[in-house]
Design a binder for these strands. Structure first.
Length: 458
RNA sequence: GUGGUUGUAGCUCAGCUGGUUAGAGCGCUGGUUUGUGGUACCAGAAGUCGCCGGUUCGAACCCGGUCUUCCACCCCA
């Protein structure tokens, strides 16, 4: 063997059966996006760097794949910058494009650029790969697909309610029972920070709070102290650390805690509306719960925040997330367009479905009928049969050479082809064909004139 | 970006404190079975032991570097 080829870290090849399973998920997701009234758009794989940079925080900027300029890009860098050997000052001068990091920011750019053609409220969905220069881990890749559904141009909380329903519809259809849709609200977090007097430390506060289930109360307190949040403030916020009970209990507690904060009370009100609506509408298989510790890194959320956890017992980061952002298009110059959206982590959903064995067997079955090749004349008769089967929409194939029957049968078996058709000398003479059911092992003989009987029996 | 971990046949992995021609199971190819797969038996092919360098009479094994895998952190789908 020559040099072994390889693919970059964090990327994957997909085999036919994997693509089959991925398409199964895509199709279900798309189907529900459509029935909820969303329309598809697509955007380029790469954007201008300044469209993306600065939208995801410093951490996000680090993870953006930058594309080297074409041509003699080095000669255009001034000597001072060049000799500084400082990556962060040189990079912007030699990389004017960058790979898409998520679908939300390109969507905001799209909305601004096409604002005059769009009928608001605009509901769009988008299923495309995104790239992040992250260190790979289980369920974390450097190239992965996001499936987003967003609504822009409506402040109605009914959108949030519908998005919860959409999550539920899709996960139910995928057979993924027992997902938890965690719900929080940025205004609630802001209210808490305000009430405890740590308004300016909102981000640090929420990031620390987000880790509660991971590092425990003591860990969170330690981190908050390190970030400069006072002991008195932490003490005031301490009811949050042991918040439990039903959604309405939690709401009552929050309402009490935030009664002095206007923004906080507004957040509680929003939470309450969404929860009450869902209680009235009901969900098929998902559960909607308040989770005050849910922060999520993306800074642009301003209202509801969603995150979906896989069913209990599956070790996997969140399989979906989203939220309300009041001013995402503002950074591109279009004010006062509120948006709310959710995202599905296709690759993680795949891993979860695979682990729980929830893919239907049929997704791996491509060809339904294989004709054994016995020789030239027999093959010609087989092709005639296959032509008719294909016209009827039956995926069928002929083994291309008259190899040993054993080999042909084995091929059919390995390919999981459920029916094998035999047309040998005898059948040729009798104008018939033998159908072998590979699952049962049984055989049946049909006349050429009875092809439709066979098709109907499939 | 920080710390750790992994790499041996197509796949999953053995390989003792460094010592001749590197092993197994599965898979693959052929045969038992010249018109029947999934079971059984027999035989066979297949590896510059991730890559580069060093130590040594001698390296899959020790040392350094590098790439890759997985994990924790950071962050996140």
């Amino acid at each position: 063997m020559a040099q072994k080829p390889s693919i970059p870290k964090g990327t994957r090849d997909f085999s036919p059966s994997e693509v089959g399973k991925r398409n199964y998920i895509f199709n279900i997701v798309k189907k529900h996006f459509k029935t909820f009234g969303f329309q598809p758009i697509e955007t380029p794989s790469f954007e201008n760097s300044d469209t993306l940079l600065g939208k995801y925080g410093d951490e996000g900027d680090r993870l953006i794949f930058k594309i080297l300029n074409s041509g003699d890009f080095i000669s255009k860098v001034d000597d001072v910058t060049y000799s500084s050997k400082n990556s962060s000052t040189i990079a912007p001068k030699i990389t004017e494009k960058a790979l898409r990091y998520d679908l939300t920011v390109p969507f905001a750019r799209y909305v601004v650029m096409h604002q005059n053609e769009i009928d608001f409220p605009f509901k769009r969905y988008q299923i495309q790969p995104v790239w992040r220069a992250d260190r790979p881990q289980k369920g974390r890749f450097r190239e992965f697909y996001q499936c987003d559904a967003d609504v822009v141009g409506s402040k109605s909380l009914l959108q949030e309610v519908e998005l919860v329903q959409l999550y539920d519809a899709i996960f139910s259809d995928l057979g993924l029972v027992g997902t938890t849709i965690k719900l929080n609200n940025r205004k609630v977090l802001a209210g808490i920070a305000e009430v405890i007097g740590a308004k300016h430390l909102l981000v640090d506060f929420t990031i620390a709070l987000d880790k509660l289930d991971k590092i425990g109360k003591d860990g969170v307190v330690t981190e908050m102290l390190n970030k400069g949040i006072s002991e008195a403030a932490i003490e005031k916020a301490s009811p949050l650390f042991s918040l439990s009970g039903s959604n309405s209990d939690q709401l009552a507690m929050l309402r009490r805690l935030l009664s002095d904060s206007e923004v906080g009370s507004k957040g509680v009100e929003e939470l309450e509306f969404i929860l009450n609506s869902i209680v009235e509408l009901g969900l098929q298989s998902a559960q909607l719960t308040i989770d005050v510790t849910l922060a999520r890194g993306l800074n642009y959320y301003t209202g509801a925040i969603f995150e979906v956890a896989a069913p209990n017992g599956v070790q996997m980061g969140s399989i979906g997330g989203g939220g309300r952002y009041d001013d995402l298009t503002g950074i591109f110059g279009l004010k006062d367009v509120s948006g709310v959206g959710i995202s599905f982590g296709l690759d993680r959903i795949y891993l979860v479905l695979d682990e729980l064995n929830l893919f239907p067997k049929t997704v791996e079955q491509d060809v339904q009928v294989l004709c054994v090749n016995f020789g030239e004349q027999e093959a010609m008769a087989s092709i005639k049969l296959i032509t008719q089967l294909r016209k009827a929409g039956v995926a069928s194939d002929l083994y291309p050479t008259s190899a040993k029957m054993q080999k042909q049968m084995k091929y059919a078996n390995n390919r999981k082809i459920p029916y094998v058709i035999l047309i040998g000398a005898q059948e040729l003479e009798a104008n018939s064909f033998v159908v072998k059911n590979m699952n049962k092992g049984s055989q049946a003989t049909f006349q050429f004139t009875e092809i439709s009987d066979f098709i109907n029996s499939l």
